[in-house]
Nucleic acid binder design. Sequence first.
DNA 1: GTAGGGTTAG
Length: 666
Amino acid sequence: MRNPIFSVYGLRNARHLCHWPMRNRVFNSGSVTSVPFRCLRPRSSTRDTDLYSLNKKISHLIRNDRICDARALFDSTNNRNTVTWNSMISGYVQRREIAKARKLFDELPKRDVVSWNLMISGYVSCGGSRYIEEARDLFNRMPGRDCVSWNTMISGYAKNGRMDEALRLFNCMPERNVISWNAMITGFLHNGDVLRAIEFFERMSERDAASLSALVSGLIQNGELDKAARVLTEFGNKDEARADLVHAYNTLIAGYGQKGRVEEARHFFDQIPFYLDRGKQGNGKFQRNVVSWNSMIMCYVKEGDIASARELFDLTTEKDTFSWNTMISGYVHLSNMEEASKLFGEMPNPDTLSWNTMISGFMEIGSLTLANDFFERMPQKNLVSWNSMIAGYEKNEDYKGAVKLFSQMLREGEKPDRHTLSSVLSVCTGLVDLHLGMQIHQLVAKTVTPDVPINNALITMYSRCGAINHARTIFDYFKLQKNVISWNAMIGGYASHGFSEEALEVFKLMTRLKVQPTYITFISVLNACAHAGLVEEGRKQFKSMYSEYGMEPQVEHYAAFVDIVGRHGQLEEAMALINTMPCKPDRAVWGALLGACRVHYNAELARVAAEALMRLEPESSAPYVLLYNMYADVGQWDDAAEVRMMMEKNNIIKQPAYSRLDSSHC
DNA sequence: GTAGGGTTAG
């Protein structure tokens, strides 16, 4: 079994086979009037042959995402049967165009059980309680229910967290099959009821590979890795679930991988027999497949253990596109673009994902040119390709390039999604372009339902562009869709625009609502205190960082605190703080002291601060200029002249527009 | 043409 596709098809075929006896049963009971099998095989009459090929064409078009063409074909003829209608309904259901599906269903002259089931599954897959009621309504009204109808309803209730209703249906359905049981197990696990899932699994008289797979993966989703491992070890050895057991193993390997428990993943990987005699009954499919290898390689890649990943990759003959992509992304995450490029070059058929991975890797190391080159050479771009490019330009601060790409994207008819839009909002923030930002906001409102990251990008954009009231409107509007970043953005926005009172007011609200602040919150809070000259408030907040939240103040907080006490004229205290702080003072710290010295005419400490700055940034003219002006202000012309001479001696050229040295970056 | 379970990027 070299190709994983085969195993998938094998499974699908097996499923279809399961339907035959079931369908026959329903059919024989006379509850269904149409003839569901009529078009499965061409008959002698041309009319039937035409119908058969029409239905085949329609489902082919739907499979290839060409629903409009399918509909045109559907509309072009009157020679349709129920299968034709059902295929069309199924196409709409798959694309979640439930209204269109329903319209066809209502117009359908002769509905069979599949038509009803399709509509029910359509409503179920839309999710939400409104749709589940609609599904239930159809279920109640339909003339003859089969096992599929019951199972669809059960899984619908399970997905919506209504296990009570699912259980009621399960208990009163006339005939249950293995899928009914599996749906219940999945449902319990989906709703965190591990015990009942296991109980149902144990009560089943007949289990298949999916039963065990569902239990194992559900347990893993509930964080019960070890229980999953035990279940697999215990039931995996029973014959009934022997075939395709490898799926459950693969799930477990991936589960351990996600938790960083690579050793255990490897343990189970090693337990899957490498090779088994295919002639032996029952064991034929129980061996590692390409997914097993890929899952294990993935574990190593996630851990950053690229050597072990590579070892397996080189060892296995079962490689597919997935394996190559996983290896490449491993190198990309370690910024080893040389090795990534080498593998990419050796890869037989790179797909869009491979190209995208390479692009994001080049972006990560700042190679805009190479990223661009790959982007232009790739045969098939998708939304992720565009998003990676735009996000890359934004992260590398080439905002103009990002905007150019974005408009090119729109011109080529690609529809932006939340990823695109939040990148572009960051671009607007970078450009401080309120006009563009508002246009993107319009687009956001039209195309996506707002979520936390999008709202945060909007708040940041508006506040950075000076429209702080817009930012506040959004902040207030989305009461529940907020996280600590939203709070930080709002507080920081106020603080950086000098609205200290508002910044502190929002901070107080935040603490009242028990939102845990981060160290970024305190940078803004302390800066707000500095701007407003609130010495005691600043002192209190600085102290509370450690005493109330257990946070060790970092260099940025010291800088802000030096600013606070320094502005107030307590220069000695500021100096003492610098001398005792646990981290190395940076330019912001010394800059705050120097600024304070200038305001309060303390030439002595100003010199200390300026010299420290000169050591930190030998090319910068700012400390020289500040010191010079300071000496000039107090009339120490000799010292001023000395500074000027030092500047000339050290080849310092005065740069214009270098006004601020404090730490108010938020 | 309909119901349940497995590994990848922005």
